Simulated scan of single mutants.
Amino acid sequence: MATIWAAGAIAAILVLTMLVVSIGAAAATRHRAESAADLAALAAAGAAVEGERVACEKARWVSDRMGVELRSCRLDGWDARIEVVAVPSGVLSGFGPAKARARAGPVEQHVNGGRTVVRTR
């Protein structure tokens, strides 16, 4: 009887371990997508002066290196707006991709009574 209980406990621990590992892998995929979107937006904003085509090429270069798909890239004035998709590997691929969006561009600074106020557009 003790063997059955021990086998059941081991099976429960294995299931719990797999669940924790899967949740960790999903979180890592989401973080990778968010980081790639942020960095791609910064790269595109840095090249905005060269035009949308060049800016989006820079964003694509970053997203390719980070292992995500660049879904959209556009310049809105000096602001770069990026959307990327990261597909989780292994068993998690059936749950769908992690999507992330980011915006990067200049900020406006105003001095208000000795305090610096930074406003994003």
Results as ranks from 00 to 15, higher is better:
Ile10Asn: 14
Ile10Lys: 13
Ala11Ile: 13
Ala11Ser: 14
Ala11Thr: 15
Ala12Val: 15
Val15Lys: 06
Thr17Asn: 10
Met18Ser: 09
Met18Asp: 12
Leu19Gly: 13
Val20Arg: 02
Ser22Asn: 08
Ile23Val: 12
Gly24Trp: 08
Ala25Tyr: 03
Ala25Arg: 00
Ala25His: 04
Ala27Asn: 10
Ala27Glu: 09
Thr29Met: 01
Arg32Lys: 11
Glu34Pro: 15
Ala36Gln: 07
Asp38Ala: 08
Asp38Cys: 02
Ala40Leu: 10
Leu42Gln: 08
Ala43Cys: 11
Ala43Asn: 10
Ala44Thr: 13
Ala47Met: 08
Ala47Phe: 06
Glu50Asn: 08
Glu50Cys: 01
Glu52Ser: 00
Ala55Ile: 00
Ala55Tyr: 01
Cys56Trp: 02
Trp61Leu: 06
Trp61Asp: 08
Asp64Cys: 10
Arg65Ile: 11
Met66Lys: 07
Met66Phe: 11
Val68Ala: 04
Glu69Arg: 11
Leu70Glu: 11
Arg71Cys: 05
Ser72Trp: 14
Cys73Asn: 04
Cys73Ile: 02
Ile82Asp: 04
Val84Tyr: 08
Val85Phe: 14
Ala86Met: 05
Ala86Leu: 03
Val87Ile: 12
Pro88Gln: 01
Pro88Tyr: 00
Val91Cys: 01
Leu92Tyr: 07
Ser93Cys: 06
Ser93Gly: 12
Ser93Pro: 12
Gly94Trp: 06
Gly96Cys: 07
Gly96Ala: 05
Pro97Thr: 01
Pro97Ala: 02
Ala98Met: 01
Lys99Thr: 14
Ala100Val: 03
Ala104Asp: 09
Gly105Thr: 04
Gly105Pro: 11
Glu108His: 10
Glu108Ser: 10
Gln109Leu: 14
Gln109Thr: 14
His110Met: 04
His110Gln: 11
Gly113Leu: 07
Thr116Ala: 03
Arg119Gln: 09
